[in-house]
Design a protein around this nucleic acid. Structure first.
Length: 418
RNA sequence: GUGAGUGUAGCUCAACGGUUAGAGCACUGGACUGUGGCUCCAGGUGUUGGGGGUUCAAGUCCCCUCACUCACCCCA
């Protein structure tokens, strides 16, 4: 169908139609309400940043940085990158503007498009939207628990069910090297039997071998050391405190010792919310601690934690749950004839001044087709105006769903819906 | 980056290599001269994604290309 002359949207981006935007707004509003109750306030950071900001924070050897970023030189030759995630820009803002001088922890949320040059598939786009939150300035496990319970409340408010919460701790800069060594040790004599991907992982990020899906690798890793066994005392205490608090708040979760993160800056707590309804891209939200990132950016030691929600995936879950009411007009005015059309316009304008959604039929069309259109739009009421109504001073109303109808004076119609 | 699948009307899809490529939905009108949803009737649209090849004949087979989809990878 597409010929060379046609204009198409770029691969992996999408147009979002009004009916879907309605769902997006519901999600955004829910997030704002829930997050506000926990003291999180919106911060709007730029969509473009210096490339370094992402390279330094996400990690040079991660896939995101190595092959997925939209990076280009600006007119002055500076390397610019469209943000592939929201944490780094926010931390940059936090450090640059010395927000650490304000009372801690500082709690923010943000929402907007992210960009990654990936092969699109179900639930994965090149321009995709996230709502994220970040809390900076406290290492208290209460904060971890609060954030996870906030996420639970968010999904509850949307009426979504069947979500699984998984948590893990991947240790800190003190204990993780020990674990990494243990892992390298464990796999060193098996390396030749690992899949090609895992051979690479062995070199640059052995933790990722743990969530490889190749059968052979799954077999090979049985009995591999678990991160949790290698946590230092501080990390262990932190993790246990978090688990206790989650139980206290009645949050059901699974510990997933194989859950590792794709971004280098994570420390200690990591968590993920997954679903079985979406295919391969099953993470709906994910996050964790990044206690060293603020320092990386030149700020004072500032432990922090955050998460991001994948908008498109939540939208799809909501569509699947099929609980969405579609917005529809309150009133449809069917007009027959030129003078009726003028009358309809005047009445519609008055309703609209009160914020009532009114549609007007095209008087050129038959009453039948106007009625049909009112039905298609799912209007609550139809008002019928023709020459008869104008001469009698009364117009006809009809309630579409129960088929009741009656008459009302033109002078009173304005109060009809009060 | 790798692999598989699919491209036919606005949408969802038919058409053993063989006349003029069809149907449903949707849209408009009519049956019902001013009352929607159900029913019936009527009405229009296609460079069969694009290019090349095989053949008497290609939507159908072959090659190239483009697009989309799903999966790997990766992640939210």
């Amino acid at each position: 169908m597409s010929s060379a002359e046609r204009y198409n949207a770029l691969k992996g981006v999408q147009d979002i139609y009004p009916r879907e935007v309605f769902i997006w707004q519901k999600i955004e509003n829910t997030a704002k309400d829930v997050f506000s109750a926990y003291g999180f306030q919106e911060l709007r950071a730029p969509i473009i940043e210096t490339t370094d900001i992402f390279v330094r924070s996400i990690g040079e050897t991660t896939d995101i940085v190595e092959k997925e970023m939209y990076t280009f030189p600006d007119k002055a030759g500076r390397s610019i990158t469209l943000r592939p995630e929201g944490t780094a820009p926010l931390v940059r803002c936090y450090v640059q503007n010395h927000l650490y001088n304000l009372p801690s922890p500082q709690k923010f949320f943000y929402s907007g498009p992210m960009f990654r040059y990936e092969r699109p598939q179900k639930g994965r786009f090149r321009q995709f939207y996230q709502i994220g939150v970040e809390a900076l300035g406290s290492s208290d496990p209460k904060l971890d628990a609060e954030i996870i319970s906030m996420l639970r409340l968010f999904f509850e408010r949307l009426g979504l069910e069947g979500l699984h919460f998984e948590v893990n701790s991947i240790g800190c800069e003190k204990c993780r090297p020990d674990y990494k060594n243990a892992l390298l040790n464990f796999f060193s004599d098996k390396i030749n039997r690992l899949c090609p991907d895992c051979k690479r992982r062995f070199e640059y990020n052995p933790l990722r071998i743990l969530d490889c899906k190749v059968d052979e690798c799954i077999t090979l890793r049985t009995g591999a050391p678990k991160v949790i066994e290698f946590l230092c005392n501080e990390c262990r205490d932190h993790f246990n405190a978090l688990l206790y608090l989650l139980s206290l708040l009645n949050i059901s979760y699974d510990i997933n010792p194989d859950m590792v993160r794709g971004l280098d800056y994570y420390t200690r707590t990591t968590f993920e919310v997954t679903t079985k309804q979406l295919g391969a891209q099953n993470a709906v939200a994910a996050g964790g601690r990044y206690d060293k990132l603020v320092e990386e950016f030149g700020g004072p030691p500032t432990p922090a934690i955050g998460f991001a929600i994948g908008m498109e995936r939540v939208v799809e879950l909501l569509q699947l749950s099929n609980k969405e009411e579609i917005p529809h007009p309150k009133v449809f005015i069917a007009a027959i004839g030129a003078s009726a059309e003028k009358e309809a316009l005047i009445i519609a304008t008055r309703f609209r001044e009160d914020g009532i959604w009114v549609e007007i039929g095209y008087a050129g069309n038959s009453l039948k087709s106007q009625m049909r259109r009112a039905d298609r739009l799912s209007a609550d009421y139809v008002l019928i105006i023709g020459d008869d109504e104008i001469s009698s001073g009364k117009l006809k109303w009809k309630h579409l769903s129960d088929r009741t109808q009656g008459e009302i004076l033109f002078s009173e119609v304005h109060d009809f819906f009060k």
